[in-house]
């Protein structure tokens, strides 16, 4: 079962992603509500994939992505963003994010994108 770390500052969005990914056969190894926690949990769990919100308090998703990539250049991170934040997504892709999903999202599309990034399709 591929291990996933969910990063989002809203509990609701974390629960939604947990529900979708768990139903899709993924093991949720942790949830973080900001970039700082995400980096710590990444070191701890070494997940196969991270879903990363962009706008978060303390440390945003872009900075967290940079730090995770410096710890593990092979890290697979999918950015999770709202319509209108595509410029930030572009920056994230340049920094090594492997894909992105735009809120609101549908479960099958999320699973499809995550599997694509993990090379499971």
């Amino acid at each position: 079962m591929p291990k996933v770390l969910i990063v989002d500052d809203t509990a609701f969005m974390r629960k939604l992603l947990r529900n979708i990914l768990f139903s899709g056969g993924f093991d949720i190894v942790g949830e973080a509500e900001n970039g700082k926690q995400a980096v710590e949990l990444y070191k701890q769990h070494k997940p196969d994939l991270v879903t990363m919100d962009i706008v978060m308090p303390e440390m945003n998703g872009i900075e967290a992505l940079k730090q995770i990539k410096s710890i593990d250049p092979q890290a697979k991170v999918v950015m999770c963003t709202a319509v209108g934040q595509e410029q930030m997504v572009k920056a994230a892709i340049k920094l090594g994010a492997k894909g992105y999903i735009i809120k609101p999202f549908q479960a099958p599309k999320v699973i499809e994108e995550v599997k694509k990034v993990l090379g499971l399709n």
Binding site: F12, L16, I20, P104, A107
Partner: peptide, 19 residues
């Protein structure tokens, strides 16, 4: 709004209650 979002994402009623 959260319920509408969950419906859109394809989450079933039982899971919506639980979430």
């Amino acid at each position: 709004i959260q319920i509408a979002t969950l419906i859109y994402s394809g989450v079933d009623s039982v899971s919506i209650e639980s979430i």
